[in-house]
């Protein structure tokens, strides 16, 4: 059992590293593409697809990065009231918020898949044969990754309390 647990843990840690790395690659690609676009345009060479590519890559960078931030508790929040609550109530509040967040993420996942199916024909402007679904699918995937992060948080809250 222990080894299985270790394998799961290590696989998950690997996934997290890949996620952060992908997000970083997206950010640096955005910089490079936007920079080249500006430079080439100054030399009278317009690149029509550059901005769209930058935006496509950027959307992925944002949503992957958001899950990294969520996992590491780096999303901005306000704990002014929360930290002043008694310990038991804190657990109840946390679990209540986690429940709401889970429902919200599942809604985004479900409707995100629905949207991704219907945007299949919508062309990504300037780039022939590239569907807008490549952009829209980032949202359900991010929501799915966040659901995993969320379940770990729920697990930790329950374990530390009991």
């Amino acid at each position: 059992m222990d080894t299985l647990r270790n394998i799961v843990k290590r696989t998950y840690a690997g996934m997290c590293a890949v996620e952060a790395a992908l997000s970083a690659v997206c950010l640096i690609t955005t910089v490079v593409v936007i920079f080249s676009l500006a430079v080439f345009r100054s030399f009278d060479i317009p690149i029509h697809w550059a901005l769209d590519t930058a935006l496509l890559v950027f959307t992925w960078g944002v949503f992957l990065g958001a899950d990294v931030a969520f996992r590491e508790d780096k999303l901005v929040n306000v704990d002014f009231v929360y930290t002043r609550l008694p310990g038991k109530l804190q657990t109840v509040v946390s679990l209540f918020l986690y429940l709401l967040m889970a429902v919200f993420l599942i809604a985004l996942l479900y409707h995100g898949i629905d949207l991704s199916i219907s945007t299949k024909h919508r062309s990504f402007q300037g780039i022939p044969h590239l569907s807008f679904t490549w952009v829209t699918i980032s949202m359900p995937i991010c929501s799915f990754l966040m659901l995993i992060s969320l379940s770990i948080k729920v697990y930790r809250t329950l374990v530390t309390r009991s």
Binding site: A20, A24, I28, V62, A66, F70, K74
Partner: peptide
């Protein structure tokens, strides 16, 4: 540079998620 990149990705993800 890589450290900065990874740090920024997390900050940007956090802020842009909120804005989005």
């Amino acid at each position: 540079l890589i450290t900065t990149l990874l740090e920024s990705v997390r900050d940007i993800g956090g802020i842009m998620y909120m804005i989005a």
